[in-house]
């Protein structure tokens, strides 16, 4: 006698590929949440205002185009506490100088990435600010002075004036970011995907004619 396997009376009687696919889909949707890095919102300043780049001044000396700018509302109490506890703070300024073409895409002339790093010596009780654009760091015992030095770009040499055309339109784009600090004591190995704090300003664009 040949045995004919009895087929289930309904298709849903047994677990089949359709059910597997459904299960996988549900799981996939749920597990996607795992891989979304918790988006830490931009750090709120003590005044609850967004960090921004203000007071952008473009001038020139004999040889170079100079930039002056300030980041405002970029310090939080937590950041400063971290600095006092030995966690250095680094601002990164992304600066691009573009030549504007009216009927074409703008061409990038130069890009600068400038770091300012603030650190604290608890024994000397003094703040040190290191500038990428300067050779020597500045030391001060005043926090306010240190904050000011951190947030300011003073006379950054952007571009050689020889290469610029008088009367031509140019644009300057500038953005400030708080570099994601590495945790001390290799804590980043244990606490992945998080930073204690960060911020990122929007791109500010200034157009000017030379």
């Amino acid at each position: 006698m040949m045995y004919t396997p009895q087929k289930p009376s309904s298709h849903a009687g047994r677990w089949n590929k359709r059910h597997t696919a459904l299960c996988f889909f549900c799981f996939f949707c749920l597990s996607c949440l795992f891989f979304f890095h918790p988006l830490i919102p931009a750090a709120q300043t003590s005044e609850d205002k967004e960090p921004a780049i203000d007071e952008i001044v473009i001038s020139a000396d004999n040889k170079h185009l100079l930039l002056f700018a300030t980041v405002t509302h970029c310090f939080t109490d937590k950041m400063l506490e971290g600095v006092r506890n030995g966690i250095p703070l680094t601002f990164r300024f992304d600066i691009r100088l573009n030549k504007v073409h009216n009927n074409w895409f703008d061409s990038e002339l130069v890009e600068h990435k400038i770091n300012h790093t603030l650190s604290y010596n608890p024994i000397k009780e003094e703040y040190q600010v290191a500038f990428a654009e300067k050779d020597r760091p500045e030391v001060t015992r005043s926090l306010e002075e240190a904050k000011s030095m951190m947030a300011d770009i003073n006379g950054l040499e952007l571009y050689s004036l020889n290469k610029m055309h008088i009367g031509s339109p140019y644009s300057l784009e500038i953005k400030a970011t708080l570099v994601e600090n590495t945790f001390p004591l290799s804590m980043h190995s244990i606490i992945p995907f998080t930073s204690l704090w960060n911020f990122e300003t929007d791109w500010r664009t200034v157009e000017f004619n030379y």
Partner: peptide
């Protein structure tokens, strides 16, 4: 010695700051 004292306290304070995340990670 002074630097080690300084480091010690700063490390400790950092740990205090990171207490919550460390606890969470554990």
């Amino acid at each position: 010695l002074m630097q080690s004292v300084s480091k010690g306290i700063t490390d400790y304070k950092q740990l205090v700051m990171l207490k919550a995340p460390i606890k969470l990670s554990m």
